[in-house]
Design a protein around this nucleic acid. Sequence first.
DNA 1: CCAGCAATACCTACCAGTAGGTATTTTTTT
DNA 2: AAAAAAATACCTACTGGTAGGTATTGCTGG
Lengths: 212, 212
Amino acid sequence: MKCSKVVLADDHQFLLEGILSILKEEPDLEIVATALNGIELMDVVAKQKPQLVILDLNMPGYDGLQCLQKIKADFTETKVLVLTNYIQPELVEEVRKMKAEGYLIKNSSAAELKEAVKTILAGGVSYPASDELKSISDDSYFFDEFLKKYQLTKREVQIIRMVCQEKSTKQIAAELFLSELTINTHRRNILRKLELNNVAGLMNFARENQLL
Amino acid sequence: MKCSKVVLADDHQFLLEGILSILKEEPDLEIVATALNGIELMDVVAKQKPQLVILDLNMPGYDGLQCLQKIKADFTETKVLVLTNYIQPELVEEVRKMKAEGYLIKNSSAAELKEAVKTILAGGVSYPASDELKSISDDSYFFDEFLKKYQLTKREVQIIRMVCQEKSTKQIAAELFLSELTINTHRRNILRKLELNNVAGLMNFARENQLL
DNA sequence: CCAGCAATACCTACCAGTAGGTATTTTTTT
DNA sequence: AAAAAAATACCTACTGGTAGGTATTGCTGG
C-alpha cells in the first residue's frame, strides 16, 4: 500500500498540531498540507488532489459545510472526514446527505481518529453509531446528572433546544401539539430555575452545557 | 534548571494531544497529567501541585473561570496559562483580574505557546498585546470580508456581541453612552440585514461566524 | 395508598424586542 | 468639496417574551 495524501483543515493551530502528531505515526499517510480556513483549503485541495480531507466544520469565513459541498462537487476522488465539536443529529444527517465519508466528534480519542481514517481510506464510511448519538444527547448518566444539577425536566430541555433553534413559543406549541400557554409556563420555569432573564442567557447556558 | 511540572486541561482530546506534542519537545517541562473537565483538573492539581496549569476556558460542567479562581485561591504556587477560543477584551480583563499569569488564543502558533510557557515559568506574565487584540477582532482581512459579505458595520457587530452577552437594549445603551432608541435602530438593522427574526437566530449567526 | 413531581393549561400584566418610517450629524470615500 | 455610508436619534405600533399566581391531570416512588 502506498502513501495516501491527506489534507487537514482547522482554524485552530493547536488542533492541527494535535491531529498531525497523531497521524504522523501512521506510515501509510502523508499529510501534504494544512489549511486554517476554507479559502486556503480549497486552494490546497485543487493543487494537491488529496485522497482525504479532514475538515473542521467550525471555521471562520466560508464554513465547513460549504467546503464539503464544493469538494464533493469538484473533486469526486477526494474523501472527507468531518470533525466537529457538537453532536446534533440533524447536523450528522446533513453531513451524511452531503456524502462525506465520515463524521467524528472532536473529543474523540486518538485511536478513534486513526480508526476512522483507516476505514475511510479503505473505502468505507465512519459515522457515530446512532445509539451513541442518542446516549450522549438523552439518556446518559451525565444527562441525568445534568438534569438533577439544574432541577430541569426532560420536557424543559426539549423546549430549551427548540428555543435555541429560533423557534417561537407559538411554533413550539404547534410542533408539540400543546397550548401556547403551556409552553409559556415551561419557558418561565426554565428561566426561573436557571436564574436567567432572556433567550440570550438561555442560549449561552445551552451552549456551555453542550445541549446544542 | 530542573523540570517543571505542568498540567493540561481541555475537553478536546485532540487539542490535548496537540499541546502535548508541542510541549514534549521542551526538555525542561514534564507534563504530569491531563484533565478533560474541571472536576478532574481540581483533583489532579491537588495531588500534583504543579508549577503550571494550562487551562481551557471552554470546558463543560464547571467552567474554566471557576477553576482558575479555585486554583488561585487554594494553590498560590501554581501558575495558570489560560487558553481560549475567543478574543473578547472583557474576558481578557476578567482573567487578568483573577491573576492568571497568561492568556493565549487557541489558534496561536506552537512557537507562541512555548514562548508563553517559558515566560511564565521564568516568573513573567504573557498576555496578548492590546493592539493584537484589536487587530484580530477588528481589523483583520477576514473581518472586513465578513462585514462586506453581510453588509454589516463595526458598530453593528459590536452590538451583536453585546446582545449575545445577554445584555438588554437598555444595558447596551448605558454602556455605550447612547440612546436606547439608537440601539433599537441598530438591532433592527441587524435583523433586517441578516434576515433573522429574533435573538436566538442572531446568536446562532454569531456562533456560526465566530463572533463570540 | 398517598405524596410529590411532571406536564398540562388558564388569566392577567408588563416589559423588551421587533418593526415601520424619518431625520440629523458625523465620518469616510471619491 | 461633494457624495456616500455610518452612527445617532425620535415617534409609533405591535408582538412576543417575561412574570405572577393558580389549578388539574397523570405518573411514580416510598
